[in-house]
Structure formats: C-alpha cells, structure tokens
C-alpha cells in the first residue's frame, strides 16, 4: 500500500516553482498534495497526483528532472495526539523517517500524513499490525477531490 510520489529538482531562484506547476496544469493534472524542501542553492518539490505516470511524462517532456519514490500515506484523526500514534510505532521499531508532510481535509475531520521511510515495506507491515489506516492512491484521491 505504497504511493508513488514525484519529486522534481528546482534551483532556488524566483520563478522556478511556477514552471512545473504550469506544466501539470496544462496537462490537466490535479495536484493532491505538494511540499517543498529547500536548501541555499536548490530545492526539491514533492508531489502526489492522481496519475503519476501522466504527470511524470508531462514533466519530463518539459525537461524537468523527475524521480518516483515510494511513500506511505497514513490517515489519522485530526486531533491532538493523532500523529503521535504513528510516531510511537516507528520509534519502538527503531525505524527511521527520512521526511514527512501532512495535510488535513475538514470534511471528515481527518488528516493524511505522508511518510518517506528508510524501509517502507517494514513500516507498512508494522502500521498495519497496529491497525493504522494506510491509504491507497485512489483513497487519497477520493478524500481530497471528494
């Protein structure tokens, strides 16, 4: 139950972010969630989209460098301690989280947290054992697009 996340290399300069976004818009790709990590010189844009292959093709056609990475989306209650339940599992198993980002959708009072694990397969197994809700690509799509 892993999702394919796209990451795009960007230079840390004005106007760089709009380019890939425009490419996706022109290709009719809706961005479900987006996060940007920056360093002094460059940034990495991370995206989850309904049809990653289509998005990847469009970006590559526009000469972007694109990577596909497996991430895990976990649904938690949007309330204090929601994230903590997940983190505890990871901490107990000594599993390393490379990075994460989260977004909420008010309708169901739930939040989705996207994790990039060092070892996603083990992480998925552990989370499932603890009966935490892991979302498929379609489920993320449904939740966001409604």
């Amino acid at each position: 139950m892993k999702l394919n996340q796209l990451s795009v290399f960007l230079e840390n300069k004005p106007g760089r972010l709009s380019e890939p976004c425009k490419v996706l818009a022109d290709a009719g790709v809706n961005i479900l969630t987006i996060s940007l990590a920056d360093t002094e010189q460059f940034g990495i844009l991370r995206l989850i989209v309904p049809d990653w292959q289509k998005a990847k093709n469009a970006l590559e056609k526009a000469q972007c460098v694109v990577n596909v990475t497996e991430v895990v989306a976990v649904e938690v209650e949007d309330k204090p301690g929601g994230l903590q339940n997940v983190l505890q599992v990871m901490e107990q198993a000594q599993l390393n989280i490379e990075y994460m980002y989260a977004f909420t959708f008010r309708r169901e009072n739930k939040a989705i947290i996207v994790f990039r694990f060092e070892d996603p397969d083990t992480a998925v197994k552990l989370l499932q054992q603890k009966a935490l809700k892991i979302l498929s690509s379609e489920e993320v799509c449904q939740r966001v697009e409604g």
């Binding site: 990451s7 360093t39 010189q41 990495i44 460098v65 694109v66 990577n67 990075y99 990039r116």
Partner: peptide
C-alpha cells in the same frame, strides 16, 4: 546539470552529491 541518474528526492543525498 542534474540528470535523472543524479537526482534523488532526499535533500541529504543531493547535498551529499554536491
């Protein structure tokens, strides 16, 4: 120029490459 071979989604890996 970053190519697909050089690119990683991890900041640490990219800084390492640099």
């Amino acid at each position: 120029e970053v190519t697909a071979d050089l690119f990683s989604d991890k900041i640490g890996a990219m800084e390492g490459l640099q």
